[in-house]
């Protein structure tokens, strides 16, 4: 199997169960939304190729289970992350309150070399629900929290409608690059699944 030289950027998506992590990832990679995704058990990832200034990168996006009980598995998955995406549901207060916990948990388990400057991105998801009428966390509040944590970039998204998803991941990839630039690795073509393999999996299979 031929292998090409790539740069791998590893991104971890965290947030409470049901905030839409799996949906966001699939919307970004496969441009699709399905309300038949199952709750994530364990972990999985999708990959997507992105281009910056004539250079190709492979974005490896990790989706883990949201329930706190499974956090002890995290350490195995967080290792080597280049960017961490924190997701909450703008309609669920608790999911916003948890952001701090997710962020700290990540820093402990991934133990990045420079935690102060480790790139995070926050997404307030499901802005489409009920035309925004059921939302309980205001944009202002969310931005304030992001500012307090070292100016974390913030996006309001809808995985369902595909709002702001592409834009958010552009920034995610770019920020991952700031620390992921150095690692050059060989990737066999087989895991270059962003476009074909995983697409079938995510949509066709009920698993």
């Amino acid at each position: 199997m031929p292998s090409r030289r790539r740069t791998l950027l590893k991104v971890i998506i965290l947030g409470d169960s049901g905030v839409g992590k799996t949906s966001l990832m699939n919307q970004y990679v496969n441009k699709k939304f399905s309300n038949q995704y199952k709750a994530t058990i364990g972990a999985d990832f999708l990959t997507k190729e992105v281009q910056f200034e004539d250079r190709l990168f492979t974005l490896q996006i990790w989706d883990t289970a949201g329930q706190e009980r499974f956090q002890s598995l995290g350490v195995a998955f967080y290792r080597g992350a280049d960017c961490c995406v924190l997701v909450y549901d703008v309609n669920v207060q608790k999911s916003f309150d948890s952001l701090n916990n997710w962020r700290e948990e990540f820093l402990i388990q991934a133990s990045p070399s420079d935690p102060e400057n480790f790139p995070f991105v926050v997404l307030g998801n499901k802005v489409d629900v009920d035309g925004g009428n059921s939302r309980v966390v205001s944009e202002k509040k969310a931005r304030a929290w992001c500012a307090s944590k070292g100016n974390i970039p913030y996006f309001e998204t809808s995985a369902k409608e595909g709002i702001n998803v592409e834009e958010a991941f552009q920034v995610i990839a770019k920020n991952a690059l700031t620390i992921g630039d150095e690692e050059e690795i060989y990737l066999p073509d087989t895991i270059d699944v962003g476009s074909n393999n995983s697409q079938q999996r995510a949509s066709g299979c009920e698993c």
């Binding site: 364990g42 972990a43 999985d44 990832f45 490896q60 066999p188 087989t190 895991i191 699944v193 999996r201």
Partner: peptide
């Protein structure tokens, strides 16, 4: 990584 994906 690849093993996890393969198994899934």
């Amino acid at each position: 990584d690849t093993l996890l994906k393969f198994i899934n």
